[in-house]
Write a protein that binds this DNA or RNA. Structure first.
Lengths: 147, 147
DNA sequence: TGCAAATTTGGTATGGTGCCAAACTCCTGT
DNA sequence: ACAGGAGTTTGGCACCATACCAAATTTGCA
């Protein structure tokens, strides 16, 4: 994998990035502020932080959109969320419960661990909250020998 | 059970509390500073924070020791760590690996989830890094019907 | 074109973690 | 008995993440 450790972004930033990735087109400050129940200036600053780090592109007064790097990272974040949620559901948590708790934990789960759980689960296609996309080279087709 | 959510302490504070719980008798500032590789003043302040929150008792210039509350909470922290590590080992992580990764994640895992995983695992007695103590009323004897 | 809505900027705050230097306490050895 | 060194605490400062408000700025519609 291309150097994703899973700890590049703070939990909040990761949430914002996932949100931007979920939206089609550019995200307005107001939309993000509403989504996270914060003041618009807070949304601007958090998104600005992601832009400075190269995950988003900022068209001032227009909105924020994903860069290639942001898109790649967001795919990881979504996959991580779904793997963790699926794991929790295997321990008896109901789907929405698993999803909610996954949200709380996932920020601390490394890519390494996600890949291991993913492999151990047999590279599942579905989680409790959506399809799981397996990046080529990230987890599914890799691991030639062991595991 | 008694109102432990699992999110009472920041990850660092939780680590310090576990450390104090692991030591016999009072912990000196220097010991903690060495253990966490920080300046003595930092150790003082972090431990002071735990004391102010009621988890530790502070005998100035003498050391810090657990209060009843701290002891109870530390038991939860250790149990959480071991349950999470055991869970990870079930996904193919080697013992020390599971233990290391658990350390990174456990701060974000709620008591609720710990109890669920614990139950789902059949209230195991051993983890990859030590015995698992099941507080009466915390997890094992509870859950009368379901699960 | 002018004004309302949206956005950004700058100032400020809090909490957690960290450092250093200075002040203070403890204890041991002479 | 007490001086000095080791250990500890205090106060000041810094940084990052997150958050707010008020003021300034830009956009876009009427």
């Amino acid at each position: 994998m291309q150097g994703i450790s899973g700890h590049e972004l703070s939990p909040k930033r990761a949430e914002y990035l996932k949100y931007v990735a979920d939206c089609t087109g550019a995200v307005r400050t107001t939309e993000a502020a509403a989504r996270f129940a914060v003041a618009p200036s807070t949304a601007t600053k958090t998104l600005e932080g992601l832009a400075r780090a190269g995950y988003l592109e900022h068209a001032p007064y227009r909105g924020f959109s994903l860069t290639a790097k942001g898109e790649r990272y967001a795919r990881f974040l979504v996959r991580r969320h779904r793997i963790v949620a699926l794991m929790l559901s295997r321990f008896g948590l109901a789907p929405e419960e698993a999803c909610t708790e996954a949200q709380k934990m996932e920020g601390c789960v490394s890519r390494e661990v996600v890949d291991r759980i993913c492999a151990s689960l047999g590279h599942p296609m579905m989680s409790v909250c959506g399809r799981i996309e397996h990046d080529p080279g990230c987890c599914s087709p890799a691991e030639p020998g062991g595991e």
